[in-house]
């Protein structure tokens, strides 16, 4: 059995607002093993980003609160430790890459200083060593003229270069787990290819596990070993990447796969999932996908199904497979 590095069990993160409680994450179970890349797929508002923020404990300044479930990193319960202990893990053992590199880099600090900050804190390097390390990291992520770039500001770099800087920063302390939240969504395809290539290389070399959050099924197929599909705050299906693409069980996963136009595929019409993604204030009763599901049954509208183990390492939350063994959560 592979060594678990991150284990999220039945996580529930709710936001309180004037108009009531929004259950952004409501039953998410994800396990990431050592050195493995796990894709988390879902559409906007499905709770994939809130899940990652919960892991990093970055919800402090928001109305969001973890109300249930556990997050364990190398056997340590991240909810129970103090902020001081968390600070030793964050940016060190767990690093994160955000979607928009421009808004996540500080515009008034030089690139080198931003990379060095974490290095000085976690690896206890002195200023000169940290700067050296920053330059090495920049070279590692393929930035030309690293010695000069280290003294430049984020605005002087292009989008692809900024994302490389973000990766250099995240990888600077050789994290065991990298959480990448839509790392290439803001980039052009040729730049995206460069960045994905780089992430794959770095994770192999440093044996870093990646939790890759994305909505792009192409990126998932290319990068991931296992895939978690989320819908409306819940995990609806999880399996290895081949099973997800070749033998999906949940009607939402199926619909998602068929609705994407594929290169070289000739169809006149795309299969599409009817209706819209439900808004938090307008969550349907029972299974959240029931109103859009082509295989909907009566029970779906009344009761939410459990996440069940339907095959070896293949879980699915759907009433069509309710006779399987219950996943032990």
């Amino acid at each position: 059995m592979a060594e678990k590095i991150l284990e999220i069990k039945n996580l529930q993160t709710h936001f309180t607002s004037d108009s009531g409680v929004v259950k952004a994450v409501d039953g998410v179970t994800i396990t990431v093993n050592k050195g493995e890349t796990v894709g988390v797929v879902g559409e906007s508002g499905c709770g994939k980003s809130v899940t990652s923020l919960s892991v990093m404990r970055l919800l402090k300044d928001t109305p969001g609160k973890i109300v249930g479930g556990t997050i364990e990193f190398e056997g340590k319960n991240l909810e129970a430790i103090s902020e001081k202990e968390m600070r030793l893990i964050r940016g060190n053992e767990i690093a994160m890459i955000f979607q928009e590199p421009m808004t996540s880099l500080n515009p008034v600090y030089k690139i080198g200083r931003q990379i060095a900050e974490a290095v000085q804190l976690h690896l206890k390097y002195d200023k000169r060593q940290a700067r050296e390390h920053a330059i090495n990291m920049l070279k590692l992520v393929g930035i030309p003229r690293a010695e000069e770039i280290v003294d430049e500001f984020p605005y002087q770099l292009s989008g692809g270069m900024r994302q490389r800087v973000m990766i250099a920063m995240a990888m600077a302390c050789k994290p065991k787990l990298l959480i990448a939240d839509e790392p290439t969504t803001a980039l052009d395809v040729t730049i995206q290819a460069q960045i994905l290539d780089l992430m794959r290389k770095l994770s192999k070399e440093g044996d870093t596990a990646i939790m890759l959050i994305t909505h792009d099924l192409g990126v998932v197929a290319e990068m991931c070993d296992r895939v978690v599909v989320m819908y409306a705050g819940k995990v609806v299906e999880e399996a290895d990447v081949f099973t997800i693409f070749e033998n999906p069980k949940h009607p939402y996963t199926e619909g998602l796969l068929y609705s994407v136009p594929k290169l070289g595929q000739k169809v006149d019409r795309l299969d599409s999932i009817p209706g819209n993604v439900p808004t938090p204030s307008n969550m349907p009763e029972g299974c959240k996908f029931a109103p859009r599901c082509p295989k909907v049954m009566d029970i779906c509208r009344q009761q939410d199904p459990d996440l069940l183990l339907i095959d070896k390492e293949h879980t699915c939350r759907c009433w069509l497979y309710q006779n399987s063994e219950v996943l032990e959560v």
Binding site: T190, I191, Q192, A221, E222, C224, F242, F245, K262
Partner: peptide, 24 residues
């Protein structure tokens, strides 16, 4: 290069990829 850079939603397909260097 552009066509080869598009990620394809098929995990079995391993293509020869032309990675362009540099930025636009």
């Amino acid at each position: 290069a552009l066509l080869s850079a598009v990620p394809v939603p098929n995990p079995r397909l391993k293509r020869e990829r032309i990675i362009l260097t540099g930025d636009i």
